[in-house]
Design a protein around this nucleic acid. Structure first.
Ligand SMILES: [Mn+2]
Ligand SMILES: [Mn+2]
Ligand SMILES: [Zn+2]
Ligand SMILES: [Zn+2]
Lengths: 142, 142
DNA sequence: GAATCAATTTAGAATAATTCTTGCTATTGG
DNA sequence: CCAATAGCAAGAATTATTCTAAATTGATTC
């Protein structure tokens, strides 16, 4: 259990979001990199990109920032097979299509009104916290 | 390119399946372990179980066997987050539900007649080779 | 059955993404 | 300003998996 430091007024003048995330320069930088190009970069990709703005940032910090952004649900972590994790700022529920020809990962929207239970034979009493849909294939030009 | 050794008759007396997989003692043992308990064991789980029958088998061999069984589609590899890979002998198309309370992974069937394209807004021209659906949550007794 | 020779197995080393440790710095609230 | 807490950086550690190299197996041919 964690004793939260008492703050009477709601963080006056502090750069925290509603959930108490402190938006440091590094977290800001990492988050901006993710928003800038929505191409699902790896931690190392993010590291290389964020160095432009923050030349002294470390890879460990990039991992820390990504972790905290994921925990606070500003970003989603995407895992394909056993490849390095990728990160995605798209907060709508969506899946991913990995084009194995180009290597590009595309967001895939759910059709409106579709319920998981319409599609899958869920164990009775299952409370789903997280859904992950990953597709692999190719884009044929035809 | 691989020159296949010429065999006039179709492998008389050899223990190969149709696709040319040689069913060695080790591969047999690994495969049997997977069929015996359909609980999605890790490579290391398989290693520990198969040792009963093959005390000299190595972990590297278990990995090799699993890889070749996956390539030959006798077994599926299941990845949750960044946890160790798990292996599943259920060849029907299905998803997985990870009960985070018990740690058990349940197979989840697709409802009959459901097409991926009914549910997802696939990129046009996408040819899907592989579908992976992973759910995380809990089973409430209610 | 023996010779051949590629496929397989094994033990151990190597790899690589990620996590951990530790000492330092920055920020917060008082 | 002070004390407490949170965050950062550098490098070490972890660990699932893959690789290497040498020994073994076993299918095919003689
Ligand atoms: Mn890729
Ligand atoms: Mn688990
Ligand atoms: Zn995405
Ligand atoms: Zn399964």
């Amino acid at each position: 259990m964690q004793a939260k430091p008492s703050s009477k007024s709601v963080n006056p003048g502090s750069a925290e979001d509603a959930s108490g995330l402190r938006m440091t320069r590094q977290r800001q930088g990492v988050y901006r990199v993710l928003l800038a190009e929505r191409d699902h970069p790896t931690a190392n990709d993010v590291f290389m990109r964020v160095k432009d703005k923050l030349p002294h940032i470390s890879l460990a910090t990039v991992y820390n920032c990504l972790e905290v952004l994921v925990e606070h649900r500003l970003v989603r972590q995407v895992n394909f097979e056993r490849e390095p994790s990728r990160y995605c700022p798209n907060l709508e529920e969506h899946g991913h299509f990995h084009d194995q020809h180009t290597g590009v990962i595309h967001d895939v929207k759910f059709k409106p009104g579709v319920q998981l239970g319409d599609v899958l034979d869920l164990p009775s009493g299952a409370v789903i916290e997280d859904v992950e849909i990953n597709l692999r294939g190719q884009l044929s030009l035809a």
